[in-house]
């Protein structure tokens, strides 16, 4: 119970929890599907809408502007991304920026490339952008970049100003593009690899946090990150943020790094699915002419290595009847 919310003026309470954002979205969704909704019942439609918002499934396949509209939407998107593609991490596959971007676009068709690229820059420390990245490295870097993107944009501007020796407090322009800043840094005499003085950087970020209130990492945790070093580079800073368990917990979308690939309920459903698929692929040829070529099967990407061979062995053992299949299981 936070008693603070009870004393807030009504408008502030609604704004703080983005109630009107969701109500507006619900109405526009309703208008898009007028006929069905009227038949189905309006109260039921709202029930389903708010249930899905609560569960975080409401951001699936939505446009980026909606996904970015609230912290809850951002966290939900991160969670969905993790749940949908965690098998990649399990297989240990390494992917490039472009490939990760394709995955993101599967969940959000108009996902902008520059957000993906920024996340990759954190993993690769702004170097060798065509390198391969592991799923968990990318995911945690992406989380920081995606969840706090506006804050990081301002932080980058501050960093560049410190690097060029300007007083950062006078020129924080969150909208200024990062290209400009990069040019400025190359012109400066100071090498960007030296980084900036950590305590000074922290002071600037602290005042920045006051302006961003809820949508920045907790200042205490930033202090913790920055107090352990004297100087640091911006990507060094982002890298540490992305690996910080405390910040991960505050966002609350992903489990801790060690548990990223564990999910017993998902494993079970996956196993059931695979079992079903293998059954179908067996019963298919039994009823009609052989349509499924045995060679094609391995190409269906079964996400878990031990399971990958099961359908094939089923087929090889004598895939023509269902009886043999069920006796094997």
């Amino acid at each position: 119970m936070s008693p603070e919310r009870l004393s807030l003026p009504g408008e502030q309470y609604l704004a703080q929890r983005h109630v009107l954002t969701y109500i507006e979205d619900a109405v526009s969704q309703l208008l898009e599907n007028k006929e069905e909704v009227c038949q189905y019942g309006i109260a039921r439609f709202f029930t389903e809408y708010f249930t899905s918002v609560h569960q975080g499934t409401h951001v699936l396949f939505r446009e980026i502007s909606f996904i970015q509209a609230t912290p809850h939407n951002r966290a939900s998107f991160l969670r969905n991304f993790w749940k949908c593609f965690r098998t990649i991490g399990k297989n240990g596959d390494l992917l490039t920026v472009k490939e990760y971007h394709c995955l993101l676009q599967m969940l959000c068709p108009d996902f902008p490339m520059d957000l993906t690229q920024k996340a990759a820059r954190i993993v690769l420390m702004d170097d060798a952008m065509d390198c391969l990245m592991s799923f968990s490295d990318f995911l945690f870097a992406f989380q920081i970049q995606f969840y706090y993107s506006e804050f990081l944009e301002s932080a980058a501007a501050i960093y560049q100003d410190l690097l060029t020796g300007k007083n950062p407090n006078t020129v924080v322009v969150p909208t200024s593009s990062s290209e400009q800043h990069r040019q400025r840094s190359t012109q400066s005499e100071c090498s960007p690899h030296d980084g900036v003085d950590a305590p000074v950087f922290y002071q600037c970020l602290e005042s920045l946090c006051e302006r961003y209130k809820q949508s920045c990492p907790p200042p205490a945790l930033i202090g913790e990150v920055l107090s352990s070093v004297h100087r640091l580079t911006f990507y060094g800073f982002l890298m540490v943020l992305s690996k910080h368990q405390g910040i991960n917990k505050v966002i609350g979308a992903l489990p801790e790094r060690g548990k990223l690939l564990e999910d017993t309920t998902m494993d079970k459903t996956l196993e059931n699915l695979v079992a079903q698929m293998s059954e179908n692929s067996i019963s298919g040829p039994a009823t009609g002419p052989l349509t499924v070529q045995p060679r094609e099967l391995p190409r269906i990407s079964f996400p878990r290595k031990p399971l990958q061979h099961r359908p094939r062995t089923d087929l090889e053992s004598d895939g023509s009847t269902e009886e043999t299949d069920s006796s094997e299981n």
């Binding site: 009504g10 408008e11 609604l14 704004a15 983005h18 009107l20 954002t21 109500i23 507006e24 979205d25 109405v27 526009s28 969704q29 208008l31 898009e32 446009e63 502007s65 909606f66 970015q68 509209a69 609230t70 912290p71 706090y148 993107s149 506006e150 804050f151 961003y212 949508s215």
Partner: peptide
């Protein structure tokens, strides 16, 4: 950083969000 909170006017919420408006016309 998040979307500017819309003013609390009950009349306002009948208007769909700009995104949807762009899609529907």
């Amino acid at each position: 950083m998040m979307a500017a909170s819309p003013a609390l006017k009950l009349a306002e919420k009948r208007r769909p969000v700009p995104v949807a408006a762009a899609a529907v016309g």
